[in-house]
Amino acid sequence: MLSVTPDVLIDLPWGQLLVNGLALGSLYALTAFGIVLIYKTTQVITFAQGETAMFSTFVAFTLLTAFQLPFAVAFALTLLFAGLFGALIERVVLRRISTTTVLNPVIVTVGLSLILLGGAGWIWGYEIRTFPDPVVGPPFRFGTIVLSQLNALIFVVTLVLMTILFAFFRFSPTGIAMRAVAENRMAAQLMGISIGRMNALGWGMGTAMGAVTGMLIAPINYLDPSMMGDVALKAFAAAVVGGLTSLPGAVVGGLLLGIVDSVAGFEAPELRNSIAFALIVIVLVVRPAGLLGRRETKKV
């Protein structure tokens, strides 16, 4: 369970709830990035994003503790692992299934998340571990509002990653090719773009994004196989609310959910997921393609 309820929350000023909500929302947005990235390139909405992130985080943990590697090295190796892992998932699993029905990718990624969940439980067990903090030091204070260094890092990472990804999709040839594949498979193929390679790349990048998220969440949330369960649901909500193909949409959706969560978590802690669910449904009913997504019309 993710619970950003720092000890400073005694009087719970609204400003503090807002800052906590934004920090939480950044995590949702980060997780949502991976989902959006994979959807954008492969048209598959993955239900395994939380679990691949969790699995990668365990790999990082093993590198850090069993092999005593420095944080930067472990971080880089984990990203590499996650990238290859994602590409492997695409190659071995998703490429084999028929996509004539939208049900298949959903079912298969649900299956994948189960295997990773059970597998991680098997390998690393369910004892709760503490993941080392990537940053240490006193929190920043702005008047009565407190911002931990970790939360500040999360803000920065979210902003930087969003900018990089945005630029990647807008300006780099590979990014443009990935978008082309998502928008019109046939045309992309005619232009000589390898769809298989782009799909594998999409999964690799999306899974690596998940690894980053996992390593930022684990210090807050402890490390255990179910650490991403709640976050992944909120990330879904964020991605869907934002429109599934839009990175800024995922940020808006994530921050919105983070704030709602932070306030709801204070007012009615039991209902946080229910409120997130209600929010998804409301947004989808009002705007079926999300806040910033484009509506796809089927040609007949």
Binding site: V110, G111, L117, G118, W122
Partner: peptide
């Protein structure tokens, strides 16, 4: 854990 893995494998 075994059951969860088996369930996932069955689906895929």
């Amino acid at each position: 854990n075994l059951y969860i893995v088996v369930l996932g494998a069955i689906l895929i």
